[in-house]
């Protein structure tokens, strides 16, 4: 299935071809070729340090922020090469929401956290418009009922799970079409995790979602496709049920059966 994406454009939402990433002189990703379908959930699994975060951060050029990190290769999103020099990163990132491993709300009010993106992109035409966007985003993130009477409270006053949902609301408030989630549930208890998983299931009707997870069950429950990474290489990429029931590669099998990682 190598290079299929680059031959048939337009079919996939995201296509990466021959992506290499170096941190200084250390290569963190080798030759990653991956095609991600629109409005599907794609899960990235693999042992710690294998490059999942590095890969997902390539997709919205977050690695630009890291001193000494070099990304090579082609990453096409909707037929645009995001690594080319004339891509506007700000505009790109506005189209790609990101949720991080550790909840990181701004030290501002709940309202301002969600309103920040729409404000800087001039999405809301009026104050009522902005109120509406904030309300809709919080509702979609499943947080509205818990915070509707204290939108002025600090985002940091929420519990960990609520903070993570606030970050999701913040990400979807700018109406992106891709949502990148790097272990969004790793800091959460099973109940909060269940809430977020349910949320992801709803969100995938509108968004293309790439999610990194350490939980095989979560990948199996949520995703259509799963990619298995090992030591900076992508070992196997297939429909999720195939990966978990019938892995082609022995390393994948070893990982999902708990023998590595």
């Amino acid at each position: 299935m190598k290079d299929v994406g680059s031959m048939i454009p337009n079919q996939y939402k995201i296509t990466t071809s021959n992506v290499n990433v170096d941190y200084g002189s250390k290569r963190a990703l080798h030759d990653i070729n991956l095609q991600i379908e629109e409005k599907e959930v794609t899960a990235l699994i693999g042992p710690s340090g294998c490059g999942k975060s590095t890969f997902i951060r390539c997709l919205n050029r977050m690695n630009d922020l890291i001193e000494g990190c070099k990304v090579e290769g082609k990453i096409m999103i909707d037929d645009v090469d995001i690594n080319s020099s004339d891509t506007d990163i700000v505009e790109l990132r506005a189209r790609i929401g990101m949720v991080f491993q550790k909840p990181n709300p701004f030290p501002k009010s709940i309202y301002d956290n969600v309103a920040y993106g729409p404000r800087i992109h001039g999405i809301a035409k009026s104050n009522e418009d902005l109120d509406n966007i904030v309300m809709k985003s919080l509702k979609r993130a499943g947080l509205w009922n818990e915070v509707e009477d204290r939108l002025d409270a600090s985002g940091l006053s929420l519990s960990g799970g609520q903070q993570q949902r606030l970050c999701i609301a913040r990400a979807i408030a700018v109406n992106p079409d891709i949502l990148l989630m790097d272990e969004p549930c790793s800091a959460l208890d099973p109940i909060a995790t269940a809430v977020i998983e349910e949320l992801i299931n709803e969100l995938k009707e509108r968004y293309t979602i790439v999610i990194v997870t350490h939980s095989m069950q979560q990948a199996a429950r949520l995703s259509e496709k799963t990619a298995y990474f090992h030591l900076g290489k992508m070992i196997e990429y297939d429909v999720t049920s195939n990966i978990f029931t019938n892995p082609k590669h022995e390393m994948t099998e070893a990982y999902i059966s708990g023998r590595i990682g």
Binding site: M62, V90, R95, R170
Partner: peptide, 9 residues
């Protein structure tokens, strides 16, 4: 990261 993530310059 959070700010860059929502597309701040």
């Amino acid at each position: 990261e959070a700010a860059y993530g929502v597309g701040a310059s």
